[in-house]
Design a protein around this nucleic acid. Structure first.
Lengths: 345, 345
DNA sequence: AGATTGGGTGTAAACGGTTACAGCGCGGGC
DNA sequence: GCCCGCGCTGTAACCGTTTACACCCAATCT
C-alpha cells in the first residue's frame, strides 16, 4: 500500500475531512459537532452555525462505515432477487424503493440467477452489511436454506415456499388467480384450454398450474397433459409454446400463460401464424404487468399489484425490524383480480 | 437505549459473534483469524481448519462496517437513476449488476424521480457510503451540479450532458439514431412524419428531436411544429399523442416516438381507432427494449444496447477507481443501429 | 447566601475489524 | 556453534464516529 492517505483515492486532493477537522475549524469538540449535525443534544445557535460553516468549507461528509460501526445500524436494506429481467422485477424494485425511501433506508440490490452457489454467495455478501433483507426465492429448495438465518437479520420472503410459522412471508394468491381465470375461460365456452407453465421448480409456477387444474376439474373438464406446455417465464418460451399449441389436434381454443411475458411471446407467434386473437384462440396471462394493456390485442390477465407487493414486503420488513410485527401479521397474502381485456372473449 | 447488546436486534438470541469470539474459540489471535479468512498471510493448515470450524460453530459473519472503516473501501458502488419504471431501466440495472458481480462489488441503488432536492438528497445519502457512483441525470441542470464532486469519489455519468473534459461520461448516439430512422422513413416515401417528443429538459429527448429535425431538413422536408407532439417517455403519453396525431389534417403517414414505451402506447391507441399499422400509418420507436419485437405489429426501433450500456458504464467506473482509465477513454459513445420490423414499411 | 437545577460543552471509551511490527522456533549455511 | 532467514503467530494501534459521563456556569429556588 502506498503512503498516501487511505480515504482519498485521488492523490492530488487533500485528505477527506473528518469530524475532528470540523471540530478544530469550528473550535468545538467532536461531541458538539456530532450533536449539531444529528440534533442529538442541546447546542447553542451560534455554535451550530459555526459547525455548519466548517462543514461547508471542509466539504465534510460523515464516514458511513464509522457511524455504522458504533450505531450498529447500516441504514441499508438488502434486496435479493432471482433475476432482474423484465417488467415484473422492475416493478417490484420500484415498489420496494419507494417505501424504502420513505423510511429513509438505502437499498442494496443483487440478483442471483440460476446457480445455488451464486445465491448463497450473494446472500453472504449482503449479510452483515444490511439491517434487513428482502428475499425472493421461488425455487423450492432454496427457501428453507435461508430460513435458518432469520434469527440474526430479519428476512422477508416474497413468493417463497417457506413453511416455518415465525418467518415473514408475503405471497400473492397464485392459485386463486389462476383458478378464476380458467373458470372465466370455461364460462365463455372454452373446453380445450392449454397452459404454458413456468419453471419446474418455481413455486409460483406450481401454484398457478394447480389453480389451472383445479378449475378444469371443478368445471368437469378433463385435464390433458398434452395441453400443459413447458415454459420458463420468458417471452421466447411463450413464443415457442404458442407454435406448438397451433400444431395440436384438435387445436385448443384458449391459451393461458403462467405470466404475461410468455403471453406476449405467444401473441407474437400467433400473429405470425395468422391465428386471430381472440376469435380463433383466446389468450390470457398472469401478473398484469403495466405493458399488458398496451399490447395488441390488449391482454387479459390476472392482476397482481406488483409494485404494491414490493411496498408491502418493505413494510413488513420495517415492522419486523422494529419488532412491532406480532405473530399474526407475519404472513401476508395479496389478493389477485381478473382483468379481462380483448385478448380473451 | 436498552441494555441489550447493540448488534442483536432479536433479544432472545446471543450477541452476534465477533472476530474475538472466533479467536478465543479457535485458540488463536484475532490477527490469525483475519489472515485465515482473507488469505492475507501465512497460516498453518490445521490452524486454518480450527478457525473455519469456529466460524461455522459461532456463525460468525464479518461486520462490514468495521472492515470498511479500516480498509476505507466499502466494496459497494452506487447507482442513481432518474426513475425505475419500465424495461429500459430494468435492462440498465441488469447490465450494471452483471458487471458489478463479476468484479465483486455490491450495488447500492436509488432513484430520484423529479425534484431536484430529492436527487441531491439521494446523492448525499450515497456519497460516503460507496467507492464509486454511476449517475444518470438526463436533466440538463443537474449534471453540472454533481460534476464538482468528481474529485472525491469517481462518478460515471450515463446519458448526461456533462461538459467538463475530465468527467467520465458514457452516452449513446441519440442524434445519429434518430437521424437515420427518420431518413429511413423518408426514403420509404413518408413526407409527413410526426414525432412524439420526450421530456422538455431531458437531454436524450432533445438530441433525438434534433436528429429528427436534421433528417427532415437534409431530406428537403420542411419541419412542421404541429407535428412535434409533447411526451414524457411513458406509454400513457404515447397513447394520448397518437390520438392527437389521428386528428391532424392532413394526417401524418408516419409516427416516430422518442422511445419505445411511447411507441407502444401509440400502437395501442392506433389499434383502438382502427388505424392500420403500417399501412395507414407507420410507427417507429427508440431504445429497442426487449419487448419491442413481441408487440403487434413488431416495432421498428433504434436499437440501443441497453444492458451493454450499463455494463460499459460499470467498466468505466471500475477503470476510474483503479486509475487505469487515461484521459482518452473517459468519454464513450455507444453506436445505435436501425432495427426495421413490421410496424414501419 | 447556599443549594439546586439544567443548558451547553468536553473527554474518552467504545464499536469490530486489519495490519505493522515484533517475537518465537526451527532448519540450514558458514 | 552462531547467525540468518523464514514460516507462523500475537500484540496493539488505528480507522471515524457516537455517546455516557463529568464538568462548568448561570439562573432560580429556598
Amino acid at each position: 500500500m502506498s503512503t498516501r492517505s487511505p480515504r482519498s483515492r485521488h492523490p492530488e486532493g487533500p485528505r477527506q475531512a473528518t469530524i475532528r477537522d470540523v471540530a478544530r475549524a469550528a473550535r468545538v469538540s467532536v461531541a458538539t459537532v456530532s450533536r449539531a449535525l444529528n440534533d442529538s443534544g442541546p447546542v447553542r445557535d451560534d455554535t451550530r452555525r459555526r459547525v455548519r460553516d466548517a462543514v461547508q468549507n471542509l466539504r465534510f461528509t460523515p464516514h458511513g462505515a464509522a457511524r455504522s460501526l458504533i450505531t450498529s445500524r447500516t441504514n441499508t436494506l438488502g434486496v435479493l432477487l432471482p433475476d432482474l429481467y423484465g417488467e415484473f422485477f422492475s416493478e417490484i424494485i420500484r415498489g420496494i424503493d419507494r417505501e424504502a425511501q420513505r423510511a429513509g433506508y438505502q437499498l442494496l440490490l443483487s440478483s442471483a440467477r440460476n446457480a445455488r452457489d451464486e445465491i448463497k454467495g450473494a446472500f453472504r455478501a449482503m449479510y452483515g452489511c444490511v439491517d434487513g433483507l428482502i428475499l425472493m426465492a421461488p425455487d423450492v429448495e432454496l427457501a428453507e436454506l435461508f430460513a435458518q438465518h432469520r434469527d440474526r437479520t430479519p428476512i422477508v420472503f416474497i413468493n417463497s415456499p417457506v413453511e416455518s410459522d415465525d418467518a415473514y412471508v408475503i405471497t400473492i394468491d397464485n392459485h386463486g388467480g389462476a383458478y378464476r381465470m380458467v373458470k372465466h375461460l370455461v364460462q365463455n365456452g372454452h373446453r380445450r384450454i392449454a397452459i404454458i407453465r413456468g419453471g419446474n421448480r418455481n413455486h409460483d409456477a406450481a401454484e398457478r398450474l394447480r389453480g389451472y387444474r383445479d378449475a378444469l376439474i371443478d368445471s368437469g373438464v378433463a385435464c390433458d397433459p398434452r395441453l400443459e406446455l413447458q415454459g420458463d417465464f420468458t417471452e421466447a418460451a411463450g413464443y415457442r409454446a404458442a407454435h406448438t399449441v397451433l400444431k395440436l389436434d384438435p387445436r385448443p381454443t384458449a391459451l393461458f400463460a403462467a405470466n404475461d411475458a410468455m403471453a406476449i411471446g405467444a401473441l407474437s407467434a400467433l400473429r405470425e401464424e395468422g391465428a386471430a386473437v381472440p376469435e380463433e384462440i383466446a389468450v390470457a396471462g398472469f401478473d398484469d404487468i403495466p405493458i399488458a394493456r398496451y399490447v395488441s390485442p390488449p391482454l387479459s390477465s390476472v392482476h397482481v399489484p406488483i409494485a404494491r407487493l414490493g411496498e408491502r414486503a418493505m413494510k413488513l420488513l420495517l415492522g419486523a425490524m422494529t419488532g412491532s410485527a406480532n405473530g399474526a401479521g407475519r404472513r401476508v397474502v395479496l389478493p389477485t383480480t381478473l382483468v379481462i381485456r380483448t385478448s380473451s372473449p
